[in-house]
Amino acid sequence: MKIETFHDLIDWTRQLHAQLAECFRHCATRQEEARAKSLLEYLADHEAVLEHTVASFEKQADPKALNTWVYDYLSHAPIKPHQACNLPYAEMGFEDISREVFSLHDQVIALYRYLEGRADIPEARDLVRELLKLEEHEAMRLSQQINRARDL
């Protein structure tokens, strides 16, 4: 997907969460390790909720911010999760899945931090800041849940 505006960025983020939810759900059906299977099921639900939450930003964001060009995105390394879900998580253990998920979320957070300081107008900066807060909060919540599962 080509990202040119903040609207594109939000849509890309929504699609990323949707793709992850679908992939986690698909891999959970083939995961043999009980803890890893439970983690994948939780992650699928978590990512599906994030998809809907991010989609709400498209509906309520300031049109001025949504239509602002994101020039600096082009120089940022793109985030590429498993493009086609060919069961990568079905073969991973609990810890490997956790590391992979946190790596993806950290990349999204880093992208938003990068863009926050480069937004040309205050409305776009506020939009990116809100998306950043959402991703940081959800990553923290995810970390707490995974740590609880790890303790079981």
Rank of each mutant, 00 (worst) to 15 (best):
R129P: 03
E58T: 01
D45G: 10
I3F: 05
A139R: 12
H76P: 02
E33R: 12
E91R: 10
S75L: 11
E47G: 04
A34K: 14
L9N: 13
L9S: 09
A36M: 13
L131R: 11
R25Q: 13
E130L: 09
H137T: 10
K2L: 15
L132N: 07
H82L: 03
A48S: 13
P88H: 02
R150S: 09
Q19K: 15
E33K: 10
N147G: 11
H137L: 02
L131I: 10
R25E: 14
F57T: 08
L43E: 02
L104V: 10
I79A: 01
E58S: 11
N67K: 07
L152E: 13
N67T: 05
L111C: 08
Y89A: 06
C27W: 05
H52C: 05
A65E: 09
E135I: 02
F94H: 07
A28N: 11
E58N: 02
L39E: 09
S143N: 13
L134S: 01
R141E: 15
K64Q: 10
R99Q: 13
A77G: 01
T29D: 13
H76N: 12
E123G: 08
L115R: 09
A110Y: 04
A84L: 06
E116L: 10
R125W: 03
E58W: 00
T5W: 14
I79G: 00
L40W: 09
